[in-house]
Amino acid sequence: MALERHHNGWIILLTFIAGLLLTIIPIPIWAMSWRPEWIIMILTYWCLALPQRVGVVTGWSLGILQDVLSDTLLGQHALTLSLIAYVSVISHTRVRTFPLWQQSVGMGLLVVGNQILHVWIHGMLGHPPTSWTFLYPALTSVVLWPWIFIILRDLRRTYHVC
């Protein structure tokens, strides 16, 4: 039992790396403001599926990496991602029973909260947002969440990640 408790963690790591790649991969200009929040979706999935394994600390470390990757203030993504991980971990027993579309709505709200936190931090640094485009990622994330959920669930089941 003790041996089996941590099993195939590299799958989790790989999905996070894929998420980081998708976050910085070049896309056309028109699509830039619509880029879904891959990291948030992947982190939320693992927090819901394996809350005893992936949680606040994972979210925070991932956030630090994303801060370096996207040249934001060190701690900015760490703060938002650890908060998202916290929300997902404490509510995982409820959210797991939700149908996918309700989860999607929840995901949308999470991303909106995340974006508002980022806008707030940027506002404090003296750059208030000039348009509402910062909310677009919430829409794409809502649309993509069911697919991400199904793909990651299949991955988890195939490789018996637990």
């Binding site: 949680g55 606040v56 600390v57 925070w60 956030g63 203030l73 060190l74 701690g75 900015q76 760490a78 703060l79 650890s82 908060l83 916290y86 971990v89 404490i90 931090i121 640094l125």
Partner: peptide, 21 residues
């Protein structure tokens, strides 16, 4: 617990951001 962790890490993030800025 997760709550204790988030409080500690949240404070740490804020301190980090302040220092970085």
């Amino acid at each position: 617990s997760a709550t204790l962790r988030i409080i500690l890490l949240g404070i740490l993030s804020l301190v980090l951001m302040m220092f970085d800025h």
